[in-house]
Nucleic acid binder design. Structure first.
Length: 569
RNA sequence: GCGCCUGUAGCUCAGGGGAUAGAGCAACGGAUUCCUAAUCCGUGUGCCGCAGGUUCGAUUCCUGCCAGGCGCACCA
């Protein structure tokens, strides 16, 4: 698409007295393919030429009639627009050849130039079970990690484990009171979760428990052996459990620096805040007054001397800058923490760090029940484990029904089941809340990952049936692809690089997810109207090249969402 | 009370100054001697939350209001 725009920009610029770049930025896609494939709106020229836009469009069309381009064949006026019509043969040839040449790297660009981008994602709280709520940060963050990598950035995935804080005090108190050793060993995370829920229930009647919890956390911060032992056990038991889920989902991180990692740096942060004169005592605690900046105050240190998570986040931000010298630092964390990040970035700025502006909160909405929000404390959450298991099970059932002869059913079921859950989270604008609904999670029809994967599998199926697998690009064969369905598919395939860039700039994998739905839809229309194997000669060859390119686009695109594209399902 | 986010078809959601506002689901009807029907084609639906403003032009930008969600010092 970019190449086509450049060509139009070059030709049109001298005729309209604009720079080629300006022309390119004005170009838009018409609402109907019938109008044309790319349009130049003439409103901007109305003042300059003192003519109505439709007249200008007509004149430009005439001026261009003798010229023509490589990738387009005609520029027709329609109302105030000058519509360019792609030459399907030339354009298709250009795009398909490019996809063939670039293969697995088609869609990638080198915008990043190797610059570091840190991405904080997943970051579960130790000792709490992995609920469906946690999947959002995990899946969105990991996709952004992959997308930035595809743009030539050096992505650095950081799992900022919530492995410190008063919650550990709570767990220790709960375990001291009600803990059973064998139950803990039996199913650690589940048991710790039960203790956590029980703590909050009992604390409602007996508020003294909260004080005990704070005291235990204080002892932990002071490095008291008994507290540290508890912490170590709870932490490693939880990590073992998370490892299973990350493994299943294919999620990776370069760093597992949890909150506890920054303990040694907290004193320094507090010292710096004092030196800069932004930290003040208030009611026995140490706070930063952000009122002049229109924000509520933040607390760096409690009156008992223990720190809070923003203190650790400050230390972590500084550590990341010093260690990775990031060009951008992303925090893929729920929208409910928006204020926290505003405060965090503001304090960094007040501490004199100009790079505070490179820190970006990438927020997302809550996963809720119809009846209200999920709460770990109240104990009403849906476990991610269960969601993934049931989704894979459902996929297995459908495969059994539709494709009973399939060889590696288990592999396909896993790809489809996990893909469904992932896609459900990635396909809508991340800022919106999601209502958790089993029926929707387990539905594999319509705009779903299965739809895209299915398109991929069918292409693979066709390609398997061809005797000569050693295909070469043939411009003549591709030039025969002039049916509407073929031209539409080619045009969509050309968009992958732009969509990856758009997704990265908006921090929205949903842009890419939606695009892949378009690819699959265009492919399915083609599939139903244009026989591949039953065609003959060069046309058959051209269609094989087209679907192979489609296969590549789907494969590459799904990969950036962290979704597998099985060859059979 | 203050702040942030959201409001588009019956439901779930795309779109995001410009040409007749689009998909999926659900409903109904159709397509399989042929490459996997997890598919495709057809039918119907919209005060784009309400009221102002900016503009040649607003569903899109600005302001106010309404509704829902989420936050607002010793949790993370």
């Amino acid at each position: 698409m970019q190449k086509l725009k450049e060509e139009i920009g070059r030709l049109l610029a001298p005729l309209v007295q604009l720079e080629p770049e300006e022309v390119i930025s004005l170009l838009e896609v018409p609402p109907e393919t019938a109008y044309g494939d790319i349009a130049f709106p003439c409103y901007v020229l109305a003042r300059q030429r003192k003519q109505p836009p439709p007249l200008i469009a007509g004149e430009l069309s005439k001026e261009l009639s003798g010229i023509g381009g490589h990738l387009w064949k005609e520029a027709s006026p329609r109302g105030p627009y000058l519509n360019f019509h792609i030459d399907p043969s030339a354009y298709g040839s250009d795009i398909i050849q490019r996809i063939r040449d670039e293969g697995l790297t088609y869609g990638n660009t080198d915008l990043g130039g190797g610059a570091n981008v840190t991405i904080d994602y997943s970051s579960p709280n130790i000792a709490k079970p992995f609920g469906v709520g946690h999947i959002r940060s995990t899946v969105i963050g990991h996709s952004l990690y992959l997308i930035y990598k595809a743009l030539g950035y050096n992505s650095i995935g950081i799992n900022h484990l919530g492995d410190w804080g008063t919650q550990f005090g709570k767990l220790i108190v709960a375990f001291e009171h009600w803990g059973e050793e064998d139950e803990l060993l039996d199913d650690p995370v589940d048991y710790l979760y039960k203790l956590y829920v029980r703590f909050h229930k009992e604390a409602e009647v007996d508020p003294a428990l909260e004080d005990q919890a704070r005291a235990w956390f204080k002892r932990l911060e002071e490095g008291e052996a008994e507290a540290v032992d508890y912490w170590n056990r709870f932490r490693s038991l939880s990590l073992d459990n998370y490892a299973l889920i990350y493994d299943l989902l294919g999620i990776e991180f370069q760093h597992f620096h949890g909150e506890s990692h920054y303990n040694d740096m907290l004193e320094e942060v507090i010292q710096l805040a004092r030196e800069k004169g932004i930290a003040v005592e208030s009611e026995g605690a140490l706070i930063v007054d952000l009122e002049p900046h229109g924000l509520p105050p933040v607390m760096l240190q409690k009156k008992d001397g223990a720190t809070l998570y923003i203190t650790r986040d400050l230390a972590a931000a500084i550590y990341r800058k010093e260690t990775f010298n990031f060009a951008r630092s992303l925090y893929v964390v729920g929208a409910e923490q928006a204020l926290h990040f505003q405060q965090l970035f503001k304090v960094l700025e007040l501490l004199g760090f100009s790079w505070a502006s490179q820190c970006i909160h990438v927020p997302f909405g809550l996963i809720r029940f119809k009846e209200g929000r999920m709460s770990t404390r109240a104990g009403n959450i849906v476990l991610l484990d269960e969601v993934l298991r049931r989704s894979i099970e459902m996929a297995r059932t459908i495969i059994e029904e539709k494709n009973p002869d399939l060889n590696n059913k288990e592999e396909a079921a896993r790809a489809v089941g996990l893909g469904a859950v992932r896609f459900g989270d990635l396909s809508n604008d991340r800022i919106k809340n999601i209502e958790f609904d089993w029926d929707k999670v387990l539905d594999f029809s319509g705009e779903t990952a299965a739809y895209i994967q299915y398109s991929h599998a069918r292409i693979c199926s066709i390609l398997r049936k061809v005797e000569d697998t050693d295909r070469k690009f043939d411009p003549q064969a591709v030039s025969l692809l002039i049916m509407d369905e073929e031209a539409a598919l080619v045009k969509t395939l050309a968009l992958l690089p732009d969509k990856i860039i758009d997704a990265a700039e908006a921090y929205r994998p949903s842009i890419l997810a939606r695009y892949l739905i378009d690819v699959a839809r265009d492919f399915n229309r083609f599939y139903h109207n244009c026989p591949v194997l039953a065609s003959e000669g060069l046309l058959r060859e051209g269609r094989l090249l087209l679907i192979d390119a489609t296969r590549q686009v789907i494969y590459n695109g799904l990969a950036l969402l962290g979704i597998e594209a099985p060859e059979e399902m």
